[in-house]
Design a protein around this nucleic acid. Structure first.
Ligand code: ZN
Ligand code: ZN
Ligand code: ZN
Ligand code: ZN
Lengths: 136, 136
DNA sequence: GACATGTTGACAATCATTCTCAAATAACCT
DNA sequence: AGGTTATTTGAGAATGATTGTCAACATGTC
C-alpha cells in the first residue's frame, strides 16, 4: 500500500509465435507434463521452439497463474493449464489423470491452524494422490 | 494382501558409525535442511561422512518414515526428523521454523473428495506456509 | 526505414542427486 | 581368532533438469 509503487515499470511482454505455440500446446492436454515433454509435443506439432524458451515461457505462465506447477517425487517440475481460481489437485498416481478440486473446508482449516500459531501471510499447497477409476 | 509376499527378502541394514551420525545430526535441529547442509553439519561436528552416504541414509530414513521430506520452490529436497504419526507442516517462509500440525478435518475432506471422484488408495500432501511470530 | 528493447536459441554452465566400484566393515561360521 | 560373505562406504565420474550467455532476431513506435 505504499504510495510510490502504483505501477512499477513492468516490461511489455510481446506476443510471439513461440509463446502462442506453448499456450496452445498447454491447451491440448489435461494432465501434468514436464517442460521437456511439452517441448517434444511442440516438435511433433511442427512448432519449432527452443527448450530454453519453453522453460522461460512456462515460468512466466506459472508466475501469471496461468498454469499450475507440481513437483514429481524426484523433484521434476510438471505443468498443466488451470482455472483461474484457487484450487487443489486430485492426481492419479498411475496415469496422471487430474481433477481440480476446491472447497472452503481446507481453506478454513489452514487459516485457523496458522492463526492459532501466530503465522501471518499464509498460503498452502495440497495435493491428493490416488488411483483413478480407469486404472483400478 | 496377496499370500506370497509376506516378507520379501529385505536386506538386513547394519548399524554403522555413519548412520548413527546422521540420525544424531537429524536430532540436533528442528527445521528442514537440505542433504548438503546436513552433510556440512556433520563435518562441523567432526563426523566425517561421505556426501553420497548422507543422501543414501536420508532416503532410507525417509522411506522408513523417520524423517519428513519436502521440496523447496526450486525442487531441492529438504529433510527434518518427525514424529511417527501422520501430520502436516506449518513452515515459516522466512526462517524455516516448523510446526507439525494435524487434525481430522483435512483427512476427512481429502478422503471424501477422492471417494467422490472414484479415486482409490488415496494419500495426500499438505504444507502451510506463512511468516512466524518471530519474523513479523 | 531506423531505433530501442524484449525475445529467441544453440550451447555452455550449474548443481543437486545418482552411479560406479574397489576398499572397508559388519555379521556369521568354525 | 581366522576365514567367508553380504553390506556399506566414499571419491569421483556421470546424469539430468534447469539456468545462464550472448549474438541474431522480432516487435512496437516514431
Ligand atoms: Zn489413472
Ligand atoms: Zn486451498
Ligand atoms: Zn520465522
Ligand atoms: Zn493428512
Amino acid at each position: 500500500m505504499t504510495s510510490t509503487d502504483a505501477t512499477p515499470p513492468l516490461p511489455p511482454l510481446r506476443p510471439t509465435r513461440q509463446r502462442r505455440a506453448v499456450v496452445e500446446a498447454m491447451a491440448s492436454f489435461a494432465d501434468f507434463r514436464s517442460a521437456q515433454e511439452i517441448h517434444e509435443l511442440l516438435g511433433e506439432r511442427g512448432e519449432q521452439v527452443g527448450l530454453a524458451t519453453v522453460y522461460r515461457t512456462l515460468q512466466r505462465l506459472a508466475d501469471a497463474g496461468e498454469v499450475d506447477v507440481l513437483r514429481t517425487e524426484d523433484g521434476e517440475a510438471i505443468y498443466r493449464r488451470c482455472s483461474d481460481s484457487h484450487h487443489h489437485h486430485l492426481v492419479c498416481r498411475s496415469c496422471g489423470a487430474t481433477v481440480e478440486v476446491e472447497g472452503p473446508t481446507v481453506e478454513r482449516w489452514t487459516s485457523a491452524i496458522a492463526a492459532e500459531h501466530g503465522y501471518a501471510d499464509v498460503s498452502h499447497a495440497l495435493e491428493i494422490f490416488g488411483t483413478c477409476p480407469r486404472c483400478r
